[in-house]
Design a binder for these strands. Structure first.
Lengths: 255, 255
DNA sequence: TTGCTCCTCACGTCACGTGAGGTGGC
DNA sequence: TTGCTCCTCACGTCACGTGAGGTGGC
């Protein structure tokens, strides 16, 4: 026979203090049926037993582990096997949360460090390469924006094209052509250099297609992508002219 | 001059997909003024730029690090110094959250393992000692409940008393007396063994007080504590009798 | 008497989610 | 025509917190 210590009671404040929670939280647990309502004293005050303290610590332990209160309620009524398997699940989710925190830490550390946070690792490497070969920062930013939109529209395709263009940059003639195109952006559409640039481009494309490689993303893949490309082309009279010259030559060679 | 790629727009679904959030979340960020409303197309659909994608990724990076959206809004408008110091704060809080997760993991692991979760480490050690010297499980549970209530009522005092009682258990005579008291709980109040137990108790207390040690928690410390002790005493006629005998002797020796 | 603890509503908050009812492009 | 994406309300959810207005023991 145990002496009836359980009839000796503590107040809601003492209970809350013991478990490290607020009084409001304790009352909330009563409302949702998580913690039994204790007896009341003559003033209407709740009076708790050690059993309540134990139950409350249990509730908080589960809640602190991220278990929703509705699930906590189920678990308090579960048999030992169910409970043990739930504990294993909870531990898994805690490990996952720890991993998410590690990821969050590396990401906030990148907030001050360029584009790497906003684009894929492959794209960041590609943009870095552009800077290295002397592309102006404003152009790099434009490429970044273009690729972000492509990635948003068609993630798999964009990833493939980044890889292709990254690889093409190893070819010195492609690098040279690429830089020349950027220069040409602000030329007049009558500039005679445009014809020579078109010639160089044609030669390079011929050589490349003989090696069985694609020159640019296949047209018709995604209308949104084509629009993006057209928008780039249309952003400069000189580029528009280059595009025309290219189309004319293709028509001639096909006809 | 940058070609105006920024006029090429993506839908809310594509934007959300790029940033890994839901469409509802994006609309929520518009409502609370976190993310600029973009232009609308002829159907009234929102059309986003790469800048929106970058802003959204930034928002999510901060939000995923546990920063409240109201604070995210402030940070997007903060100068670089404020921002950098905020990032340091955020990292600190993330480390703290990682520590909280580690604590949660050790605590849920204890859910299946006895009392250690519900009582202080000192008390758990004390209860373990009781089991070792042969105290019945039901009595150990009673002590645990009593100490939980004491701890709730007066944490510092309870911690001190546990330490004292733990130390006293090293004294073989105290251990023997303790076990005898538990036996005596169910004796008749007329049992002649009660007088002999009272004698032994008196001798032990005398010896102990000569060594300048306290015998029990000082009375009058906290009325709630005294109530707890009285409740234990009152839970058994034999214990009540022992308490009476003790009081009589003290009166005699004082008179 | 004063301060402290407790009581019960009712409503607020945070970050979205749910669902109704509807429109527009392929 | 059908399915898909998008639109705007309005209300719901989760785990409490805030605050009003009041009572009871030292």
């Amino acid at each position: 026979m145990r002496p009836d210590v359980s009839k000796q009671l503590i107040t809601i404040g003492q209970l809350a203090g013991y478990a490290g929670v607020t009084i409001k939280a304790v009352r909330h647990y009563h409302r949702v049926g998580l913690l039994d309502e204790p007896v009341r004293d003559t003033s209407g005050y709740r009076r708790y037993t050690a059993q309540h303290a134990i139950a409350l610590v249990k509730i908080r332990t589960l809640a602190d582990a991220g278990v929703p209160l509705a699930r906590v309620k189920e678990l308090l009524a579960a048999d030992p096997q169910q409970f043990a398997s739930a504990v294993a699940d909870i531990d898994r989710s805690l490990r996952e949360r720890a991993a998410a925190i590690r990821r969050a830490r590396t990401r906030i550390a990148q907030l001050n460090a360029g584009d790497s946070l906003f684009v894929s690792a492959d794209l960041a490497a590609y943009l870095g390469r552009l800077r290295k070969i002397g592309v102006k920062e404003s152009w790099v930013a434009t490429e970044r924006d273009l690729w972000i939109l492509m990635q948003a529209v068609s993630p798999e395709a964009a990833a493939g094209w980044v890889a292709e263009k990254f690889a093409a940059l190893k070819d010195p003639e492609f690098r040279s052509l690429y830089l020349a195109y950027l220069d040409a952006h602000d030329w007049s559409p009558d500039d005679p250099r445009l014809e020579r640039l078109a010639d160089r481009t044609e030669r390079w494309m011929l050589k490349r297609s003989r090696r069985g490689k694609r020159v640019a993303p296949a047209t018709g893949v995604d209308p949104a992508i084509n629009q993006l490309i057209a928008a780039s082309t249309g952003s400069s009279p000189a580029w528009a002219r280059l595009s025309e010259i290219g189309a004319e030559r293709r028509t001639r060679s096909a006809g």
